[in-house]
């Protein structure tokens, strides 16, 4: 069963050699159960910190992270994670890589049931026949598909994807978007996707949240106005291009390139500000 995620006024800082480095500031974000939310924002703005907080791998300094109304204080087995680096276990076969989470959280399943579950997922992503291969024999896109299967093996309530397609070439990436879309249809989970790719965000997500620059807070929220059953052509439609333009503008605001929120050099960037007043919909941007 998919679970809801509520992030309430979370502030977090890392302790570094030069003192505190604030990464998240008063961040609030709600993902209803079963929905898919993408988070975009300038690089290094604390998006990965967000995933670690939701996964329970870290506790926020202040504020709360709630899953199904219950405060997250430690890791819970109902979460699945996949990263840009597929981190497959090279000494295991593809099948046994997918089985890994079941060895931790579903010890009561028979090895036959575990194997069936893994085979089911692998065939969903088009990897039947590769079960007994080693990860080193697979291409980058195939490795990432195995990583997605592994993150879903134990039927997580929440799936956290931290830029899983970031290192792939454009065509492989589109393939994986469609595989991910099909997985969303067949598996039942709440999705949180961190990405740099705006097209990816509107193709996969129901809602896209733009984070501000560090310390990050939620700056803008976009409900994706595309049919639930999407195909890749639709992200090149006029409606989609408008949404992409809006998101892009919001990221420029987040980076401080418009609205006078400039860090460092101002020259040469101010003329952009003149030509396009920002379509501001959220008040937190100027803070």
């Amino acid at each position: 069963m998919p679970a809801s995620v509520e992030i309430e006024n979370v502030t977090h800082a890392y302790r570094t050699g030069d003192g505190l480095l604030p990464v998240l500031k008063d961040l609030s974000l709600t993902i209803p159960a079963g929905e898919f939310t993408a988070v975009v924002g300038p690089s290094g703005c604390g998006k990965s910190t967000l995933t670690r907080l939701v996964a329970g791998l870290m506790k926020p300094d202040t504020g709360r992270v709630m899953i199904d109304g219950e405060q997250v204080s430690s890791p819970r087995s109902s979460v699945g994670m996949a990263f840009q680096n597929p981190v497959l276990l090279e000494w295991r076969t593809v099948l046994n890589n997918v089985i890994l989470p079941l060895e931790i959280v579903a010890k009561n399943l028979s090895s036959k049931q575990k194997q069936q579950r893994a085979e089911e997922l692998l065939s969903m992503v088009g990897l039947e026949g590769f079960e007994s291969k080693r990860p080193s024999e697979l291409s980058g896109g195939m490795r990432q598909r195995v990583s997605l299967c592994r993150s879903l093996a134990h039927r997580p309530e929440i799936l956290i994807l931290d830029e899983p397609f970031g290192a792939l070439d454009a065509f492989t990436r589109e393939d994986l978007w469609q595989i991910m879309r099909d997985l969303c249809k067949q598996e039942n989970f709440t999705g949180l996707l961190i990405t740099h790719d705006l097209r990816e965000s509107i193709f996969l997500a129901d809602t896209v949240v733009v984070l501000s620059d560090r310390p990050a807070t939620s700056q803008y929220k976009l409900e994706v106005d595309l049919p639930a059953d999407r195909n890749v052509e639709q992200i090149y439609s006029t409606a989609a291009v408008d949404m992409l333009a809006t998101l892009r503008k919001q990221i420029e605001i987040a980076q401080g390139r418009v609205e006078g929120k400039v860090k460092g050099s101002v020259e040469g960037k101010t003329d952009r500000q003149a030509e396009s007043p920002s379509p501001q919909t959220d008040t937190t941007a100027g803070s």
């Binding site: 890791p75 819970r76 087995s77 994670m81 990263f83 981190v87 000494w91 890994l100 931790i104 956290i160």
Partner: peptide, 27 residues
């Protein structure tokens, strides 16, 4: 050991010993 290797098991609530046994040691 890349932190992601640790995270895929830690996120499931696996103990440090399990992470060591299943991932760190063979790797």
């Amino acid at each position: 050991l890349e932190p992601e290797y640790r995270d895929i098991l830690r996120a499931l609530g696996a103990s440090r010993l399990t992470v060591f046994w299943k991932i760190a040691l063979p790797k």
